[in-house]
Amino acid sequence: MEPTQPSAIHEIPNQYSIPWSVAFQVSWAGVRRRIFRSAITMLGVVLAIALLTYMFVTQNITESLVNTNDDALFILLQKAGVDPFSANRVDSMTILLITLSLITCLVGIINAMLMSVTERIKEIGTLKCLGALDSFIVKSYFIESSLQGFLGTLFGIAIGLLVAILIATTNYGRAVFTFFPGLAAVKSILIAAVTGLLISIVASIAPAYWAAKKEPVEAMRVEE
């Protein structure tokens, strides 16, 4: 692929477009090295998904315990503030709380990504001087945000699950494990995972396009 010597204007090739797989390798290295900065962006996802997972799994556990029709467990459930007769209904407060936390999370990621783009305006300009196309910038910021969303979601699920089981065990003892609602919990975790990924993908669209709009001349910007 030696540079050709174009003799007419239409012989000057269009710049090569970097495939997703290569953009992924480049972004992955960046996320790993800027792990502290990435963690800040991830934190929003971690908290929101942890809350979501916690609430869903707790709901699964109480439902499963209510269904045992065990008198001793009913006393424990009532002590923990659960009404055994309405336990299979998710109340509107919970839904509101979850929705709010997800919106906060979305805004949080967008904000953190915009900040991270602002910090790297000069870097984006430099990449464009080296021949990066807008599409490469979009891809790499999109991948970066999705990776952070993916990792954040994983941590969030782990934390939410752990806390839900921990609190349930303190309230109801070993019964939690005896009657653990495995299938329902897996379903809850899947919902949380999809939600986390969806939010981080949606949140990354605007910052990625904003980053790609930066001009190569930004490379010359003098900082401080």
């Binding site: 540079p3 204007i9 269009n14 710049q15 464009k128 080296l130 021949g131 196309l133």
Partner: peptide, 13 residues
């Protein structure tokens, strides 16, 4: 896209 090619292959900054 041609300009990006020129910056990439013809010019070193």
């Amino acid at each position: 896209r041609q300009l990006a090619w020129v910056r990439c292959r013809r010019i070193g900054f």
